[in-house]
Design a protein around this nucleic acid. Sequence first.
DNA 1: CGCTCGGCCTGTGCGC
DNA 2: TGCGCACAGGCCGAGC
Length: 277
Amino acid sequence: MPELPEVETILRCLRERVEGKTIRQVDIRLPRLIKWPAPEQFQTALTGRVISRLERRGKYLLFHLDDTTVLVIHLRMTGRLYYRAAQFPSGSLTRIDFLFAEGDALEYQDTRTLGTLHLLPLADLKTLRGLAGLGPEPLTPEFTQAYLSQGLNGCKAKVKSRLLDQAFIGGLGNIYVDESLARAGIHPERRGDSLRDEEIAKLHEAVNHVISQSIRENGTTFRDYRDGAGNKGGFQNVLCVYGRKGQPCPVCGALICRTEVGGRGTHYCPQCQKEVD
DNA sequence: CGCTCGGCCTGTGCGC
DNA sequence: TGCGCACAGGCCGAGC
């Protein structure tokens, strides 16, 4: 479900609500979501811990605890984290319920149940390969035009597939890749190594622009996404191509096309994003 | 080694 | 109305 801007929005929302809270009880209703350690140990180890700090890396959310262990949550497609005030009961959609000593709670919901939860000592975070191998994120000093250029150099894969690789760029997902390529005027099926310098410059600008604008808009609610308090995002109102098959391109008016690239639904403007390979 | 594809899950919305 | 199918924001591992 969520990509970098959505996870960032959840982080900002939850920070003020759960940092400093003591976990009194963990109610596990779908144990298979807990990948490490075994659910019983997960439950025991978390009970009594204080959440000292929240952090986001790519699409991962990290809950640092007062004993230097870390709860790592990945929401995958439909995971949600909801803060629940003390007077409300836990709902039927909750898969894992974190109850605080103060009476309030954090609930993990997940329709498709593809999400993952790990509890690890800080020093063992490197064993989570997806997390440890994350590439630089958009809007960081490491994500330069030169880095993008170097990563596309010799890349025979389609540019869209390359941009979705979290080890190359951390945090981009299907929506923002489609939107970035649209803004840069690059067809998603172009070979990575076919992009000219000026196109790479445009793509670099586009990725940063799209991600920063979406963070400002609190992410994209295409369907399921909500932040930690249940609020929708706003970026869906300014999407140029994603989910807009058959609708006019806001730039040129041509009708948006949908195709499949690397098994992912892909949207582009046939006029602004010409195939030139 | 680089890359593509299928599998993991459940729910929703569409066309017939 | 009911049914079946296509599709869904991500990631990993098998296999080419």
